[in-house]
Design a binder for these strands. Structure first.
Lengths: 120, 120
DNA sequence: ACGATGCGCAACCGATGGTTGCGCATCCGC
DNA sequence: GCGGATGCGCAACCATCGGTTGCGCATCGT
């Protein structure tokens, strides 16, 4: 049934909308610092820093110190794991509600045409 | 039109591991009450009741009073929306990961082909 | 050398997931 | 019909978390 400890950490990590956006930004730009990310987010540097700490703890990102800055970038393999988690839960529900799968896909199509990615 | 309010509510609703399990149980057994669910969960009835209230508020489940009991069941259409949310985020990241991998492979071969395909 | 920049630590606040305790309504056995 | 068991909601309370502000320290640039 899913829900191991690691899985749960990944879930809670990507469950936060701010963290999702941060991952998105990091993926888009390759890397970033707490300060650079905070400039593109509606939260303060400290909040971003905390989120980065969380993401770092679960291994979704890792930092590389460069002088007085800390450059973060996404760990692709770990993110792939997280994506697999999403898919797993979706599939689990889908397995029980296979008949609504088509409906979900239709909705997804609509959403994809509306928003390809996030901007806020 | 990225994260609308409703979408965000859906995310936070399914983001909680207890609520995910509750949805799972409800799907498995068709319906359930706060008490019946709490017997299968490591939390108290009140906690379950609160979660049910949250899920009810975002429309993922709805209750049907029966005597002194309140039977809940999953709203399939709304759950389909939620699954679509998961898939959408997963697809977005997945697509970007694929792009990164391709880019990395291309960089390795750039010495020869020089086919820079960085859309971004 | 000194100001600007980037960061971490600490204190604090509001929301939330969780608990316990209580009271009320409904059902069941007598 | 009465009383206990059952199911629920409300309220108080606690811990955690996302967020803020404030401060101090290290590094960079002139």
């Amino acid at each position: 049934m899913s829900a191991t400890a690691v899985d749960d950490d990944l879930w809670s990590a990507i469950g936060d909308p701010t963290r999702r956006t941060m991952i998105d930004l990091l993926l888009r730009e390759g890397n970033g610092t707490a300060t650079s990310l905070s400039e593109r987010l509606p939260v303060t540097r400290q909040a971003v820093s905390k989120h980065l700490a969380v993401l770092d703890r679960v291994g979704l990102v890792h930092a590389s110190p460069a002088g007085r800055e800390r450059h973060f970038q996404v760990d692709e393999a770990q993110l792939a794991r997280a994506v697999a988690q999403l898919a797993a839960v979706g599939d689990a529900w889908d397995a029980r509600l296979r008949r609504i799968k088509r409906l979900a896909e239709q909705i997804q199509q609509t959403q994809n045409t509306q928003n390809t990615n996030e901007g806020e």
